[in-house]
Amino acid sequence: MNNEKRNQNYLKYVEQKSPKASWFKSLFHAFLIGGAICCFGQMCGDIIKSYFPLMDILLIGTWINVIVITLTILLTAFGVFDKIARFGGAGTIIPISGFANSISSCAIEFKKEGLVFGLGAKMFYIAGPVIANGVAYSLIVGIVYYILQILAVV
C-alpha cells in the first residue's frame, strides 16, 4: 500500500477517533463572553458620554478600546486572563482583548531573555502579524483611495 493512501486513511480515522469539543457549549461560551466584553465596552462608552456629551463617537470608540486593553493587560499580569480565555475561547480572542493579551503575555513570558531580544523583540511574536497585516492593509486602502481621488472617481 502506498504511503499517501495509508496516511489519508489514517488521518480520516484519527479525525473520527478524536474526541470532539461540544459545539453547543463552545459556541455558547464564545457568544456569552464575547458579547459580555462588548456590552462592558458599551457601558464604558455610555458613562464617558454622560460626562462628556459632546465627545466625538470615534473618540469614544477609541477610549473604549483603551479601557478594555488596559484591563486585559492587568488581568494578564495577575494571571487571571488565561482562565477566562479557557472558558470563553474565541469570545476573548476576537475582541481587542485577545490582541492586548497576545502582546502582554509574550512580553511577560520572554522578558527572561533580556529587555532587548527578549521582551522588546518577542512581545510581537503573536501580535506582530496582526500589526504588520493591519498597517499593510491600511496603506493599500489609503493609496488606492488617494489614486481614485486623483482620477476623480470618488
Partner: peptide, 22 residues
C-alpha cells in the same frame, strides 16, 4: 461597541483612518 471592540473594528478603523487621511 459590539462592532468596534472585536478585532474587525480595529481593521476597519485602520482602513477608514487611511481614507479619512487621504
Amino acid at each position: 461597541a459590539g462592532a468596534t471592540l472585536p478585532i474587525t473594528g480595529f481593521g476597519s478603523a485602520l482602513a477608514a483612518g487611511a481614507i479619512t487621511g487621504a
